[in-house]
Design a protein around this nucleic acid. Sequence first.
DNA 1: CAAAGCTCCTGACCGC
DNA 2: TGCGGTCAGGAGCTTT
Length: 288
Amino acid sequence: MPELPEVETVRNGLAPVMDGNRIKTVQLNRPDLRFPFPENFADRLSGAKVHKTARRAKYLLFHLDTGETLLCHLGMSGSFLALKTGEAVPPDRNTKHDHVLFKMSDDAMLIYNDPRRFGFMDLFATDDMDKSKFLKNLGAEPTGNEISATKLLQQLSTRKGPIKSALLDQRIIAGLGNIYVCEILFRTGVHPAMPACDLTPKQIEDMVDHTRNIIREAIISGGSSLKDFTNADGDLGYFQHSFDVYGRNDQPCRKPGCGHIIERIVQSGRSSFYCPDCQKQRLKKVSA
DNA sequence: CAAAGCTCCTGACCGC
DNA sequence: TGCGGTCAGGAGCTTT
């Protein structure tokens, strides 16, 4: 499923196709995805020139010369197929879930496909972007210096729930999903069930460093898979990336000399993967 | 506030 | 081969 690094990779792939290009027409193949499309969606986009393709958290943003911004969330299974000028839809393509077609003025085309329809799109005045319900409560980007240990320490101090849930909360750090949170906790050596307020300042400092590094590495990894995009089928979906714990339950920990078996637990209905040795659950003190 | 539960959806997977 | 059941999961919304 696309998380921030995947969305950034998609942005990197779409920007050269979209920036400076004009949307000629938009074909909607259904009235909704997860939510209904905005009023007059196709009309408001038709004729608009894409000024800049951007990203905030897991949201793709297309700033238009009409004064509006198109927001896209890929949900769990959304992907874009970019067809260059003169390029036809591949004959073997399953078009069943092609929900939106953006036909560009240079005859390039962008196809949004989403089998599970957890994705959605919105369109609002760029000046009112900060008022968007999707954007207004987002926390810091985990990519650079925006996240700080000081701020995080303060934010986590009031959270008695598991650190896993806190890191998934987009109001704290914006863009982390289940996979990268598992990886961050592994690298930090913190058990996913640890109460967020119990992390030490040192652990939080480490966690911030690991977050930056893991996200950066994943974006680089996505970037290297981007050449497949330009060479081959143009599918800007997900890319393969190797993980230390995510999806590796019942397999040995990769930390040199460890080899303990990765475990899976369910927290708030979501899978958490961790190494019981590298990420020890703090022992509860039993009062005698 | 925090936190937990609900909801949306379909492909993949499993057991029979 | 087909069928029913289960699972995955982002994030807004509702409820406690």
